[in-house]
Amino acid sequence: MSEPRWRPSASRRVLELRARVNARIRAFMARHGILEVETPALLQGTTPAASITPFRVADGHAPRWLQTSPELPMKRLLAAGSGPIYQLCHAWRAGERGRRHNPEFTLLEWYRPGFGLAALMDEVEALLAWVTEGLRPLPPFVRLRWGEAMARHAGLDAPYTAGVEVLQSVLRQAGVEVDAAALGPDLDAWRDLVWVHCVEPALPEAAFVHDFPASQAALACVRPGDPPVAERFEAYLGGMELANGFFELRDPEEQRRRFAEENRRRAAAGLAPLPEDSLFLEALESGLPACSGVALGVDRLLMWLTGAETIDAVLAFPWERA
């Protein structure tokens, strides 16, 4: 691009649209009695995750970490009896840069005590209808299980139990070339590869995917059964991942075990372990109310509203111009 780097990459029209979307989000939340909160972006602990690396900030004292989402401090507010809350804020994820990724991005995150996932999916759909009103027609959301999506679009007979070899043969048939040795025996990495190549592009224009494999639960409860599944959903618009929701895990022991497991996976991938957030774990010990929560990528919502091909078109200053 020959345009000077000091200039914004989003047009004036898109900047106006962003302001309008933010105002509509706040109006929706106010109408639904959800309290706006602000929590620190620079935290003493992290959310250890195998595939998300936070930025470490040093000022000569103990390191701080830029939040990868406001999840942990918001759950501390919930544990302290805040009731329903939301936050519209920036989050940071190191190394995530691409057509749909900027390492610094805007999240809308909200929590609903007493809600199950179905009720929260309804609310996500209602929010999107409210925000997109008169801007772009929103098709009704199709709800499907992760396994249904994998069966329909990747042709898997037993998606939850299919092993690495079955997934490899699906990828071969789809003409996807990859270095198998580099990916190794990590079943979830192979599932993700099938997902991004075969399933994501074929999803309905507006879709909720739920019942993820138990190993992809992150901070969601696992519902026992055959197979056990994660009580987690993802919202998709135009084949683009827009939001991730959990029926939130409340058991501190299970939470510690998952953080340790994520750090084990980081070590196996040659990544440094991340310190867990002890204040969050103390809050879980004291008791988190049964609740569901969701994080929605506001930049991606703007991409869908404007039909933008790249996230740069909806950001004032993307990473290289920041």
């Binding site: 995530e96 691409g98 990724h101 979830d188 599932r191 993700d192 991004v196 994501e200 991730n244």
Partner: peptide, 8 residues
């Protein structure tokens, strides 16, 4: 660059 939010 492609990445599921919680994945590889």
């Amino acid at each position: 660059f492609v990445k599921p939010g919680k994945g590889q």
